[in-house]
Amino acid sequence: MNNYLNFTEILSVTMILFAIIDILGAIPVVIALRNKAGHIQSEKASLVSLVLMILFLFAGEELLKVIGLDISSFAIAGSLVIFVIAMEMVLGVTFFKEEIPESVSIVPLAFPLIAGAGTMTTLLSLKSQYATQNIVVGIFVNMIFVYIVLKNTARLEKLFGVTGLHIMRKAFGIILLAIAIKLFRTNTGL
C-alpha cells in the first residue's frame, strides 16, 4: 500500500461507502425521525458518524475483541435496530420511543443508520484493499454529503410532498426490512 493520496482509490472507496451508507435511500427514515423528535441535529449526526467510522477503521476489530464480540454479533445487533425502524415505517406504529428527542441524532441516525454494521464491516474489508489515508478521505467526502442531505430534509420533504413521502416511507421501509433480514441471515448462517 502506498503512503500517498490516490484519486482512483479515494473515488472507489467513496463510491463503495456511498452505496453502503445510502443516505438518499434513508431520506424517508430521516424525515420520520425528524418529525418524531422535532428536529435532527445534522452537525451532531454527521460528526458522530464520522468519528465512529474513523475509530472503527483504526481500532474496530481490536475493540470488538476486547469486549468479547465478533463482527457477526455486532452486525446482528445493528440488524435488529434497523428491523424495528423498518417495522415502524411499514406498519405506521411507534416501537422506538425516545425520551430525549435530541438523542435520535445519535441513535438510531448516526448509529446504526449512517455508521451501521454494514458500514463498519465494509470499512474493515476496505482496509485490506486500500491505503488507510484514502479510506479516511472517502469517509470525509461521504460525511460532507450526509451533512448536506440531513441539513436539507425540509426542502426534500417539500420536493416529494406528503403523498410522495408516504409512498417512499413504505417502500423504503420494506427495503430497510430486507436489508435488516439480509444482515441477520448473513451473520447467523440461516
Rank of each mutant, 00 (worst) to 15 (best):
residue 154 A to W: 00
residue 142 N to K: 02
residue 85 I to R: 09
residue 49 S to L: 11
residue 114 I to D: 00
residue 18 F to K: 15
residue 139 I to A: 02
residue 174 I to N: 08
residue 132 T to S: 12
residue 169 R to L: 09
residue 86 A to S: 12
residue 187 N to Y: 14
residue 128 S to H: 05
residue 189 G to R: 09
residue 3 N to L: 14
residue 166 H to I: 01
residue 26 A to G: 00
residue 59 A to T: 04
residue 180 A to L: 03
residue 162 V to W: 05
residue 170 K to G: 10
residue 121 T to M: 06
residue 123 L to T: 03
residue 189 G to V: 05
residue 11 L to T: 14
residue 66 V to T: 15
residue 91 L to I: 10
residue 186 T to G: 07
residue 120 M to D: 08
residue 157 E to L: 08
residue 125 S to C: 05
residue 94 T to P: 13
residue 185 R to G: 02
residue 89 M to S: 11
residue 169 R to I: 01
residue 113 L to M: 13
residue 125 S to T: 10
residue 154 A to P: 00
residue 66 V to D: 05
residue 19 A to L: 15
residue 60 G to K: 07
residue 120 M to C: 15
residue 93 V to F: 09
residue 91 L to R: 13
residue 87 M to Q: 07
residue 123 L to P: 01
residue 73 S to K: 04
residue 45 A to W: 00
residue 67 I to K: 13
residue 79 S to I: 05
residue 152 N to I: 02
residue 189 G to C: 15
residue 150 L to H: 02
residue 85 I to P: 07
residue 159 L to P: 02
residue 31 I to E: 02
residue 46 S to M: 11
residue 60 G to H: 06
residue 37 A to Y: 03
residue 21 I to G: 01
residue 134 N to K: 12
residue 57 L to A: 01
residue 71 I to E: 06
residue 158 K to Q: 05
residue 127 K to N: 00
residue 10 I to V: 10
residue 65 K to N: 15
residue 69 L to F: 07
residue 42 S to W: 06
residue 103 S to T: 09
residue 113 L to A: 01
residue 112 P to S: 12
residue 23 I to L: 04
residue 75 A to T: 08
residue 126 L to E: 10
residue 103 S to E: 01
residue 36 K to Q: 09
residue 159 L to N: 02
residue 10 I to K: 05
residue 104 V to N: 01
residue 153 T to Y: 02
residue 187 N to P: 08
residue 60 G to C: 15
residue 89 M to N: 14
residue 159 L to C: 06
residue 65 K to G: 11
residue 146 V to H: 04
residue 121 T to V: 12
residue 2 N to L: 07
residue 148 I to V: 06
residue 142 N to M: 01
residue 9 E to N: 14
residue 169 R to Y: 08
residue 131 A to T: 10
residue 94 T to Y: 06
residue 16 I to S: 10
residue 166 H to K: 14
residue 62 E to N: 13
residue 188 T to E: 14
residue 174 I to Y: 04
residue 4 Y to W: 11
residue 81 V to S: 05
residue 39 H to Q: 09
residue 170 K to Y: 15
residue 70 D to G: 10
residue 67 I to R: 03
residue 147 Y to N: 03
residue 34 R to T: 13
residue 173 G to Q: 07
residue 96 F to A: 07
residue 81 V to W: 02
residue 183 L to H: 09
residue 17 L to C: 10
residue 137 V to P: 05
residue 106 I to W: 00
residue 98 E to C: 04
residue 26 A to E: 09
residue 52 L to S: 04
residue 142 N to F: 00
residue 149 V to L: 05
residue 83 F to A: 07
residue 55 L to P: 06
residue 84 V to F: 13
